[in-house]
Design a protein around this nucleic acid. Structure first.
Length: 150
DNA sequence: GCCAACGTTGGC
DNA sequence: GCCAACGTTGGC
């Protein structure tokens, strides 16, 4: 099974909020590469949750795919900030899975800390200019991250 | 708030 | 299909 990482701005949707919601539909992703990854997610896949634009920016917890991706309802809603006039119910452009909350890490792993791990040099998150908000994570990276976090 | 990096749009 | 202009992301 593939492992993943998703970004969220703490001020927009935090790990604490996710913890109290217990599950969440990961809507609003509007980037094709990220969308393709969302669609590739399988039920049960494990997903690292990362706080971007936060202090500190860090991997803060773990989620699991509950439902594979379906048409993101926000693309059809003219009142939504994620509304896409080019999308239709017949031909949706954007998709979202549903995640279940698994845990909040005892120790959030800051970007700075992650950069110091030589075994994580290849991580998509750590590549220069990497902005992708949904990323695959290798098994090796995933195992190490869990070890560091717990 | 700045700005580098990258993605998207649209004229041609 | 190219590419300039513009928009967004996200670290700092």
């Amino acid at each position: 099974m593939t492992k993943w990482l998703v970004k969220t701005e703490e001020s927009v949707y935090s790990i604490d909020r996710f913890q109290s919601d217990k599950k969440t539909v990961w809507e609003g992703v509007r980037n094709y590469q990220a969308r393709n990854y969302l669609r590739a997610m399988q039920k049960g896949d494990e997903v690292l949750v990362y706080h971007s634009n936060s202090d500190p920016t860090a991997i803060v917890g773990l989620a699991q795919v509950r439902l594979t991706a379906f048409a993101d309802p926000s693309q059809f809603d003219p009142k939504s900030e994620f509304f896409d006039p080019k999308a239709s119910k017949e031909a949706p452009r954007w998709f979202c899975p549903e995640f279940g909350f698994v845990k909040k890490f005892k120790r959030p792993l800051s970007l700075e800390h992650l950069k110091g791990q030589s075994d994580l040099k290849g991580m998509v998150l750590l590549q220069r200019g990497s902005r992708l908000s949904v990323q695959p994570v290798t098994d090796k990276e995933f195992t190490l991250i869990l070890k560091l976090a717990e």
